[in-house]
């Protein structure tokens, strides 16, 4: 077992997370991410466990919401927080169309 991830592994997880990282960061994360991953790997030591999953601590079933419109907001309220708008639309760099 090595004590570092490979550059490729770091770049792979950075890509999954959509976070750009520079060369210095790659080196740092090779060590730091490895430490974290080794820690979570300890789950593999647990071999005796029930198959029921606990998705949330809440045991009660949910109540559904009536199908009635409410809480609609005006676009003007959120406009100031949006980096780029054009009219009532939100602008982004062109979405490379597949």
């Amino acid at each position: 077992m090595t004590d570092k991830l490979s550059r490729e592994e770091v770049l792979h997880v950075a890509h999954l997370a959509r976070i750009n990282i520079n060369d210095a960061e790659i080196e740092k994360y090779r060590v730091q991410l490895k430490e974290l991953l080794d820690e979570v790997d300890k789950i593999k030591d647990v071999t005796n466990y029930d198959k029921d999953m606990m998705i949330t601590p809440v045991k009660e079933e949910i109540k559904m919401r009536p199908d009635v419109e409410k809480d609609t907001i005006s676009f003007s309220l959120v406009r100031d927080n949006i980096p780029h708008t054009s009219g009532n639309l939100i602008e982004v760099p062109v979405m490379i169309h597949e």
Binding site: H12, V13, A14, L16, A17, I19, I21, Y29, Q32, L33, L36, L37, V40
Partner: peptide
């Protein structure tokens, strides 16, 4: 960033 990266990896 570390936690997001590791978290993404753990779910992939």
């Amino acid at each position: 960033k570390r936690r997001i990266m590791v978290g993404s990896y753990l779910l992939s």
